[in-house]
Computed example of a mutant assay.
Amino acid sequence: MLDELLCRPCRLTDPPFRRAVAHGVYRGNLRALLHLLKYQGLTPIADRLGVLLAERILAIPDLPQELVVMAVPLSRKKRLARNFNQAELLARAAIRVMRRRRPELKARLLTGVLGRQRSTESQAGLTPHQRRANLRGAFFVSRKEAVAGREVLLIDDIYTTGATARACSQALRRAGVENVWVATVARAQKEETQRMLAEMDDAEDSAESEVALWDNVPAAAGGQGSAGTGER
């Protein structure tokens, strides 16, 4: 269950985002493609992954017709080292596909507004609780008027424990965003999370079925949102 990947405070409170979805599980070809994109710099791969991401986003049943799309920002150190942000490349590719397949959908990429205000240590190898603490207060919104009252689609490459999605969503909600929708190419399986974090750490040093990670949509009678893992 997804709850087993979360620290106790995360299990006891609803997430600050409305819904989180991913195209597939972080393994096999999907994992290989993400590694080639992130660590080998094969940026054209983002176009193909963007198609998969767009298909998953468009399958969200209550997706708003107007969206501000934002990519999870990299630290300045990583951005300089890679010379690109893989989340931003994925967001741009997904928007192109979304516009072709659903012309009535108004989605625009907003960059330079969501940023990191302090350096954080690598998330790789940290426990869920440590990841959450590591990112607390790390993100900020530079222009609140650009997002206040809007529906924001937050894009990243991998949803591991949800710490990054939560931290970004909290910053956006504090800036007045109406709802945050999170979409990633891949998500970690419970039994593979620790191996995945170690694998990402090693990589820094040197198409699966669609799943829904978290559904925080209130029930019709005003009940609490529900969590779903989409486990296979």
Rank of each mutant, 00 (worst) to 15 (best):
Q170E: 09
P64I: 06
G225S: 06
Q224T: 10
A138N: 08
G28I: 00
P44N: 09
G137A: 02
E208S: 05
T160V: 00
Q65V: 06
E231I: 13
R174D: 15
T43D: 05
G222S: 14
R136D: 11
L34Y: 04
Q189I: 03
T160G: 03
R166Y: 13
G149Y: 05
Q130A: 09
W214F: 15
L34N: 07
P16A: 02
T193Q: 13
G115D: 03
D201F: 08
R195S: 10
G115V: 15
R118C: 10
F140H: 12
A54E: 01
R173L: 04
R143L: 03
T164F: 10
D201M: 14
A219V: 14
R11A: 09
A219Y: 14
P73Y: 06
P64L: 13
H129W: 07
E178S: 13
N179A: 15
Y39A: 01
D3C: 15
S209N: 07
A198E: 08
L63E: 13
F17D: 06
I158L: 14
Q123M: 11
C168N: 15
V51T: 04
V217S: 12
A165S: 15
T229A: 09
Y39V: 05
R79K: 14
S142E: 12
H35C: 03
A212D: 15
R100C: 03
C10W: 01
T164I: 09
R92V: 10
R173V: 06
R100F: 06
G176N: 05
E66Y: 08
R131L: 02
F84G: 04
R143P: 04
A227T: 09
K106D: 13
T120V: 10
L154Q: 07
L63D: 15
A163W: 02
A212N: 09
S119I: 12
E66W: 03
N85V: 11
Y26P: 04
S226M: 12
E199R: 11
L80H: 04
A32V: 03
R27L: 08
G50W: 00
N85F: 10
T164D: 09
A171S: 14
F140G: 09
L6S: 00
L90A: 09
S169N: 13
R195W: 10
I57Q: 05
L42Y: 10
Q189L: 10
L34F: 07
P61F: 02
F84W: 11
R102H: 12
Q40N: 13
N85R: 04
I95D: 12
R131V: 08
A175E: 00
G223C: 08
D62G: 08
Q123T: 07
E151V: 00
G41L: 08
A124P: 12
E210R: 14
L197Y: 03
H35R: 12
V185D: 05
R174V: 02
I60P: 06
V113W: 02
L6N: 00
A198Y: 01
S122A: 14
R101M: 10
V147Y: 02
V25F: 11
D157Q: 07
P16Y: 01
R79N: 06
N83Y: 09
V182K: 00
V217D: 15
E151T: 02
Q189S: 07
A133W: 03
A146L: 09
R232M: 02
E199C: 08
Y26D: 00
L110P: 00
A91V: 01
L6Y: 01
N29P: 02
